[in-house]
Amino acid sequence: MLEVSGLRVSYGQSEVIHGVDLSVKRNETVAVMGRNGMGKTTLFKTLIGILKGGAGSVKLDGQELVGLPSHARVAAGLAYVPQGRMIFPTLTVMENIQAGLETARTKAVPDEIFSLFPVLHEMRHRKGGNLSGGQQQQLAIARALVSDPKVLLLDEPTEGIQPSIIKEIAQTLNEIRRLREITILVSEQVLSFTLDIADRLLVLESGRLVHEVSRAECDADKISRYLSV
C-alpha cells in the first residue's frame, strides 16, 4: 500500500532523515517509535508533502507521490493528523470536519463520524480552539477520516493528552479498523498505546530505522530502552 524507499530529508545543510525504507501493507497498522528529535515529524511531514525536496521515493498504491503538492497527495489517498493537532482554531468543529471533505465526493459529513466521536457532535457549533486537547485530537482524526483515506498518518496522537483519553483514542482507532479498510502509519513514544493498536513496530533513531518487530514478538523492555534517554 505505502512504499517508502531511500528517503533522505534535510533542513538546509543538515540531513535529518538518512535513507529510510519502509513499507506498510493494506489494512496494516505500523508504528514508528522514537524519542524526541529522532525525525518522526520530519518523516511524516515529508510523506504528506509539507516538507518538500529530499531524495527517494514515496509510493501509494503504486503511484509516485514525490513532487506532488500536499493537496494532490490527499486526493491520491493520504490523510494526515499532525503532531500538535493543528485544527483550525477560528473555525467551528463542524467547519473543521467539512474542511476535510475537500477531496470527498459528497460534501456532507457522514453520520459514522459522529457515532465514532459523539463529543464532536455535542460541540459542533463551538470554535475548534475552545476544545480540550483530547477533543482537538479527536477532531483532527475526524477531519482526516472524512476524506476516506487509504492511508492515515498519525504523528504522536497521544502527546499532551490524559491517560483516560489515550485509552479512548486507541479504542476508536481499532473501531475504525473494524469498520473500514484502512492502513495506518503512526508515530509514538508511548509504548502501551502502541501495543494496543499496532501490528508492527519500527524504531527510528537519529533518522535511521534501527529495529523492526511484530507486535506478537515484541520485547517491551527492548523497545523501552530505545525510548529512554
Binding site: 504528506i48 508533502g49 509539507i50 503538492p69 500536499s70 493537496h71 490527499v74 486526493a75 490523510a79 494526515y80 499532525p82 493543528m86 483550525f88 482554531p89 477560528t90 473555525l91 467547519e95 474542511a99 476535510g100 475537500e102 477531496t103 477531519r143 482526516a144 476524506s147
Partner: peptide
Amino acid sequence: RCTVSNREMSGAVGIN
C-alpha cells in the same frame, strides 16, 4: 478561512 488560519495544514487536508 482555512488558508488564512493555517496554510500548510489546509494543503494537508486537501485544499488547493
